[in-house]
């Protein structure tokens, strides 16, 4: 009897320990992305489009992602998917979240599926022979018609991921940025040599004007001199 009781005590302690482990290692909120930077060239009036891939390969719950941006210019930037309110049932509680998209936990796969749903993709894992399932975000930047050519502008897109956890005192969120460098380029390409113009050609019109004035001055002086001489001769 005592042996049975001792065994039961050991088993219950083991069970409690396993439950404790599960609780400790639960609640993983994960957010990943690629790329981290992008360089774009666009002409005035064009819309630059950048595709950003977001993923959740380590989490154990949805990561709710909202997107914001900062920039050195006031040009319109839009995201697809757009920001929206979504209602979730979380263990019996109805909660409304404002998000651009939600990332389900989705580990890497060894084979890409033949049919890939829109808004998703698979990117090559950089270190293994696997593919990371991603959700794609389309970032559109509209360049104004009067944008100055050959100027470069910086845009920073911030993805902030939040997960629902058990009620707690401090609720952390995860964020990572995408840096976009956008250069405005002219609509057409041309190339022509710019020659150094000699000064006497550059100022040819001015030189001509001066020569004319001098010559006219000489003519007028000669005329006056001739007239005086004529007057002297007629007096004699």
């Amino acid at each position: 009897m005592t042996r049975i009781v001792s065994s039961l005590k050991i088993v219950s302690m083991l069970l409690l320990f396993i439950m404790f482990l599960n609780i400790s290692h639960a609640q993983k909120c994960s957010l990943g992305m690629t790329p981290l930077s992008a360089s774009v060239r666009a002409t005035p009036g064009q819309t630059a489009i950048i595709i950003w891939n977001l993923y959740n390969i380590y989490g154990d719950r949805l990561t709710h992602v909202s997107l914001t941006y900062t920039s050195d210019v006031d040009w319109p930037v839009t995201f697809d998917p757009a920001l929206k309110n979504v209602t979730y049932d979380i263990a019996g509680q109805i909660v409304t979240v404002t998000e651009n998209l939600a990332l389900e936990p989705n580990p890497p796969v060894t084979v890409k599926p033949e049919v890939i749903p829109p808004g998703t993709n698979y990117v090559k894992h950089p270190f293994t022979d696997e593919y990371i399932p991603v959700k794609t975000v389309k970032i559109s930047i509209k360049i104004p018609e009067n944008a100055e050519v050959w100027k470069t502008h910086e845009f920073t897109i911030l993805a902030e991921g939040n997960c629902f956890t058990a009620p707690g005192a401090v609720i952390p969120s995860l964020s990572t940025p995408l840096k976009i460098t956008l250069q405005v380029v002219p609509r057409e390409f041309y190339e022509k040599a710019v020659l150094q113009i000699p000064w006497y050609v550059q100022y040819s019109y001015v030189i001509i004007a001066i020569v004319i004035i001098v010559l006219l001055g000489i003519i007028y002086w000669s005329y006056r001199r001739g007239k005086k001489l004529t007057q002297k001769v007629s007096k004699k």
């Binding site: 609640q27 993983k28 990943g32 690629t34 058990a166 609720i171 990572t176």
Partner: peptide, 16 residues
């Protein structure tokens, strides 16, 4: 070469 980054938070929320 494309850049990748990800982070996962565990032991959340921070409880006192």
């Amino acid at each position: 070469v494309n850049e990748y980054i990800s982070a996962t938070l565990s032991n959340i929320p921070i409880d006192f």
